[in-house]
């Protein structure tokens, strides 16, 4: 099993509903976010292109954060989800420093926090909060090993990219382009 997410940059309008859905679902402390919207404008005026991406932890195959964690608090769950166990985390910040996506942050309670792919919802057969809240239905979630999962289906027919694959992390959030 390998959970992954695909996000359609052509459909995303950057409304930040995913951000608010995540903050509400996961009780993210005020002023912090586990997912966020990035808007990239590229080109020469007036020929400009815009790409809107909803970003979050990439739940990498080769996660530097899991590798550098001195206590094993950062670990892989079933399906490749990268999680932090709060009462094993000493808050040293090594994982925060090791993440090329800066997807982690220090929770005010001391431990390090990040996107969990809403593992508590997946276990109940639900989609992650961000996916279910998206008004343009631009996000797809599922098991890459299952050829009929929404994420496998969309990756079969669309071109996609991942963020800085050259960092060697094996990111598992795919952006449809």
């Amino acid at each position: 099993m390998r959970y992954a997410m695909a996000i359609d940059t052509k459909k995303c309008v950057g409304c930040s509903d995913c951000v608010v859905a995540c903050q509400t679902e996961n009780n993210v402390p005020i002023g912090y976010c586990r997912d966020w919207v990035v808007e990239v404008t590229d080109g020469t005026y007036p020929q400009l292109e815009i790409e809107i991406r909803s970003e979050r932890c990439n739940h990498c195959d080769n996660s530097p954060c899991v590798r550098c964690c001195p206590t094993g608090a950062s670990h892989y769950e079933d399906g490749g989800i990268v999680l932090v166990t709060p009462n094993e985390c000493i808050g040293c910040g090594a994982c925060i420093t090791s993440c090329p996506y800066d997807a982690r942050y220090p929770h005010p309670d001391g431990y390090v926090d990040k996107c969990t792919f809403c593992i508590h919802r997946i276990k109940k057969g639900l989609e992650p909060a961000c996916v279910s809240a998206c008004p343009t239905k631009c996000m797809y979630f599922g098991d890459l090993d299952d050829p009929n999962s929404p994420v496998s289906e969309i990756l079969k027919v669309r071109k996609y990219k991942t963020l800085i694959p050259e960092a060697g992390t094996g990111p598992q959030v795919y952006y449809l382009i």
Binding site: Y32, C33, V37, V38, E39, E55, D102
Partner: peptide, 8 residues
């Protein structure tokens, strides 16, 4: 690049 993230 404009990011909506502003984590402490």
């Amino acid at each position: 690049i404009v990011s909506g993230r502003n984590n402490y």
